[in-house]
């Protein structure tokens, strides 16, 4: 079986590193992007199985990325989990209605992330 892949999109190198360690522990092959535009270029070439997505980023934010991703051919396939410090209920609802499969509020830990992956059926 080909390993499942996860693209981690966050402008913080530290967050990417923390998330990568957790997601690799869930047996995913991990790639990283530092903003939405980079992530979109990546997805246009190879669709990952899961995208872990920060909201506020330079160049292109997470919500814009998500809308454009979902418009790409095959862009409805990846499970997208927002992972951000934005915790207001109405913003979470906005992300979900834009097509996010789930939402992780920072701070998070391995248990939270793996339970979210399980709930969206990624593991």
């Amino acid at each position: 079986m080909t390993p499942r892949t996860c693209l981690i999109v966050d402008d913080s190198r530290i967050i990417r590193k923390v998330a990568r360690r957790i997601v690799e522990g869930l047996k995913f092959e991990v790639d990283e992007a530092a903003d939405g535009s980079e992530a979109l270029t990546f997805c246009a070439a190879v669709m990952p199985d899961v995208v872990l997505l920060d909201w506020s980023m330079p160049v292109m934010d997470g919500l814009t990325f998500l809308r454009r991703l979902r418009a790409l051919p095959g862009g409805d396939r990846p499970k997208v989990l927002f992972c951000t410090i934005e915790t207001r209920a109405e913003r979470i609802a906005e992300a979900l209605s834009a097509g996010a499969d789930d939402y992780v509020m920072k701070p998070f830990d391995g248990e939270i992330l793996s339970s979210k992956f399980a709930e969206v059926g990624a593991v």
Partner: peptide, 13 residues
């Protein structure tokens, strides 16, 4: 931290 351990965002909302 507690609310999202095991709960989907949709269910939480």
């Amino acid at each position: 931290f507690e609310i999202q351990r095991g709960l989907k965002a949709q269910t939480m909302l």
